[in-house]
Amino acid sequence: MVLVFVETENGKVRKAALEAVYYGYLTAQKLGTSCQALLLGNAEDATSLGLYGATFVHQSDSISFNFFDNQVYSAAIAQAAKKLEASVVILSHSSNGKSLIGNIAYLLDAGSVSAAIDIPETDKGFSVRKGVYSSKALVNIELNTPVKVISVLGNSLQISVVGSNAEVQPIALDVLQPGIKVLSVDKLQSNVTPLPEAERVVSGGRGLKGPENWGIVEELADVLHATTACSRPVSDADWRPHHEHVGQTGIAIRPNLYIAIGISGAIQHLAGVNNSKTIVVINKDPEAPFFKSANYGVVGDLFDVVPKLTAAIKNLNA
């Protein structure tokens, strides 16, 4: 059985969790087994996990799940995996999923691969593909253990409906007391798709000249229903919040569309974005290295080009 840990936010299943369930479904199909989901806490739309391939949703609730404590969550997930005799455990490669994978894998005596980009190859053995060397290469990793743990990189596969609503049933778990105390959670703009899950990202660099000029980036993001991001110098200068920083030291993303505005494309920046499916680069410097990684390039003044692009997309949508 393939067990998928489902992350929630504000009482709803996260988009990344739907992808993880669908990944689990495709993996289960290959292995000739079922895909089931594990929910810790509550989600009003939990039955919808069935649409993406979960045959059951196992749910455990406890006040210990109100905040994220790695030890509490990993112990509960490992315990559920043992109880349900899961041979594969799937997580989202989110900030919580990344924290959990090592811990869960140790508890299950399992081999693990984080940030998988394809469903496992099971024709001979069980191998999983992921990006390495900051996406300069790919690797196929063989898992040598009876139980396997995989985290799935966001936007790695296009989900589709393969089933109907699933039954939610309680699972009894011995839940640990938290060993840490979460004092506060500070999130901005909770209505915006978080960067790792965003299908479209509009990102600004030093070429914008200052935080007061971000309006044109936001307007373009608005018409595209995109999430905004920035380069390292921009977050270092506090023009934009730190959590918007994409690149090697920030976060790595894989949207369908990445529009880079006034970003030269240093290798450290590319490391976080060059897995994007379509890259548009807008820069006045024709020598900007980013053009080499772009699908579409515009050599021009961003203060002229970006509003024109916003208007052109509005026209297209009209």
Partner: peptide, 13 residues
């Protein structure tokens, strides 16, 4: 302080 999607968490340990 721990980074997470779209923000940070403050934790006592």
């Amino acid at each position: 302080k721990r980074d997470m999607e779209g923000g940070t968490e403050t934790i006592q340990v």
